[in-house]
Design a protein around this nucleic acid. Structure first.
Length: 592
RNA sequence: GCGCCCAUAGCUCAACUGGAUAGAGCAUCGCCCUUCUAAGGCGAGGGUUUCAGGUUCGAGUCCUGAUGGGCGUACCA
């Protein structure tokens, strides 16, 4: 509908060119927008104002010139010039209802568009370290990433979803060591758990399961384990700190490796990784968050991709040596300084893995790469982009979307979170407490770059305080009305309904039709700017339209043509509500 | 110190990417269930869009500066 208006306007521009009012080469951006106020019609254009400078006449005069040249249209009822020079278009009610047969025919596919033009896109999200269960902070990235991926898929992109598993590096060694120490405690060894180890309860569970499988096979005396290890950081009564928690934990990792030997150390390591990653997968699946691919960081090392990527940078002359380490010249691409990729001890940095990972993504042939990160990683963006530029001609292939932290409140109090200390609210707890639907909706309701307050009590309340139920209720209401109609022997005759749409003359009916017509446009816009919250707001608006209609009008009336027309309208609303909710992975229940 | 993000009704957030009188929900106050689900509807009050400048026909939106908050500034992952 909107582009029909835009077409009409570009015809006028051609007319202007023929008359010599505008130069033939002139290419204006024809801007047609939905009006905010119904008294301004359905669509408005600021074209007259845009042309004031070029034509050199006041906007309202130009508006007159445009209106005088508007071609005949079957959808436009009238046109008005208003305000500083807006041209408002009023759409015929009949034309508004044209969208209904389209919706019924397209069904679940209604709203899909082709802004992606089949381009392939890799969306990488969550990618939390497998060192503990997901907490509510990860939940936002999960909900946002999943919704963005769905959105892009509806908008004509070939979407792949990927989780990057950081299954290598020091954090994982700390996890393995933590698990082993808990295991030793389980065996009956007395020891003081390192202050820098992973203290969460889930480590006990893994250790116990390890003990059940292996018995005492991995047991070493605690005395031997802690022998020669640097002292842990402690604070005495006077408040003075002593020791070094980093050296302490590193020492314990070394002990674990040498005392257990490669095979047994690996066993503990894999056990912890498997259990935690399995838990994360299950957690996300229950949250409606799926991935086609779980990409292992270790596989990068094993397959030599890291070396290949570094060689590529080296060949491009972007690697140099300083102080025994290898540096990447990221500052040449706008990063604030150069970055180390291989440390002086010969170990590759995490950044080297990440360069390789993105190198690998490009090699897999994606047109667009999207990374969804927590905002605490924002400082990391320039160096990864720098690496992309050094490797690839198109730096815009990578889009990093940052998600702000969610601050959790319960009973008006802020809850803090830290995986290391084991003090956090897990995503699973959140789902148990408020339900997956409410959680998904709450997360995705906010713009991703907006700092978010997540009030657990509010999310839990199953009242109109929670918008997700408002939308689901609209869907359920429609279902109930239809089944009641059927019970009364008034089964819906869609064909008759579509043939009688002209009987829908009430204001809420036209409003609903207008809203339904906007859905595809909302999808396209939301996809272009990666903003699934626009879907959430649209659904609230559509649900409101339905509730208002429901309260003002009886659908199941005696007169058959009118009844079927109304029920057909309502069925179309139900379809769009369902499509939108599905996009956000929120259930569309038939009764509540 | 430097860099990135944010600031809109009492609270939580929108505002179609520069458009018309800045909108929703919650909270507050009225009204509407012998009717297809009241988890609903209708209405009222509530604003110097943090502040000060600038750009232009037009600014919550863009630019500069200030204030307040979040985050980042590793040869950690």
């Amino acid at each position: 509908m909107k582009h029909q208006v835009a077409e009409i306007l570009s015809e006028v521009i051609d007319q202007f060119k023929q008359e010599g009012i505008l130069e033939a080469s002139f290419q204006p951006r024809v801007n047609v927008e939905n009006t905010r106020d119904k008294s301004h019609g359905d669509f408005a254009t600021n074209l007259a104002m845009m042309l004031t400078k070029i034509i050199g006449k006041p906007p309202r005069e130009i508006a007159d010139m445009i209106v005088a040249r508007l071609p005949e249209s079957e959808v436009i009822e009238k046109v008005e010039i208003a305000g500083p020079g807006f041209i408002n278009f009023f759409v015929l009610d009949v034309a508004k209802f044209n969208v209904l047969p389209t919706i019924l025919e397209a069904g679940d596919a209604f709203g899909e568009c082709n802004v992606g033009q089949g381009r392939s896109v890799l969306v990488e999200y969550v990618s939390a370290n497998p060192t503990g269960p997901l907490h509510v902070g990860h939940g936002r990235g999960a909900a946002y990433g999943a919704s963005v991926a769905s959105l892009l898929s509806k908008a004509g992109f070939q979407v792949s979803r990927e989780y990057y598993v950081n299954d290598a590096g020091r954090q994982m060694d700390i996890l393995a060591a933590s698990t082993w120490l808990r295991y030793l405690q389980h065996c009956g060894e007395e020891l003081t758990f390192p202050s820098n180890g992973y203290k969460g309860d889930y480590i006990f569970d893994i250790a116990q399961s390890l003990y059940e499988e292996k018995g005492d096979a991995l047991r070493k005396s605690a005395q031997v384990v802690f022998e020669g290890v640097a002292k842990d950081e402690t604070t005495n009564a006077a408040g003075e700190t002593q020791g070094d928690k980093e050296k302490h934990i590193d020492g314990l990792i070394e002990q674990a490796k040498s005392l257990l030997g490669e095979t047994h150390y690996r066993l503990v390591f894999e056990k912890a990784l498997d259990v935690i990653l399995g838990d994360i997968r299950e957690d996300l699946a229950e949250f409606g968050v799926e991935f086609e691919n779980w990409f292992s960081e270790r596989s990068l090392m094993d397959s030599g991709v890291i070396d290949a990527a570094l060689e590529k940078l080296q060949a491009a002359g972007k690697i140099y040596e300083k102080n025994g380490a290898l540096w990447f010249k990221s500052s040449e691409y706008g990063d604030e300084k150069d970055r180390v990729v291989v440390r002086d001890n010969g170990l590759k940095t995490y950044f080297a893995s990440d360069i390789a990972y993105h190198f690998n993504k490009l090699e897999r042939g994606f047109d667009v790469l999207i990374d969804i990160w927590g905002s605490d990683h924002h400082g990391y963006v320039p160096r990864v982009k720098a690496a992309m530029q050094a490797m690839e001609t198109n730096p815009d292939a990578l889009e990093v979307l940052l998600v702000q932290f969610a601050v959790l409140y319960r009973g008006g109090e802020k809850l803090s979170m830290s995986t290391r200390s084991g003090q956090f609210v897990t995503l699973r707890e959140l789902r148990d407490e408020v339900g997956a639907d409410a959680a998904r909706f709450f997360y995705v309701q906010r713009k991703s770059e907006q700092h978010m307050d997540f009030d657990l009590d509010l999310a839990k309340s199953k009242s109109n305080e929670n918008p997700v139920y408002y939308i689901q209720y609209a869907h359920a209401r429609i279902c109930q009305v239809l089944s009641l109609a059927e019970e009364r022997g008034y089964a819906l005759d869609t064909e008759m309904g579509l043939a009688n749409l002209s009987r829908l003359t009430l204001e809420p009916e036209a409003d609903l039709a207008t809203l339904l017509g906007k859905y595809p446009e909302i999808i396209a816009r939301a996809a272009q700017v990666y903003e699934p919250h626009q879907i959430a707001y649209y659904l609230k608006e559509l649900a409101h339209g339905l509730h208002a209609y429901y309260n003002s009008t009886q659908f199941i009336v005696e007169y058959e043509p009118l009844r079927n027309a109304r029920l057909t309208l309502v069925v179309a609303v139900r379809q769009v509500l369902k499509n939108g909710l599905e996009l956000l992975s929120v259930a569309a229940p038939e009764k509540m």
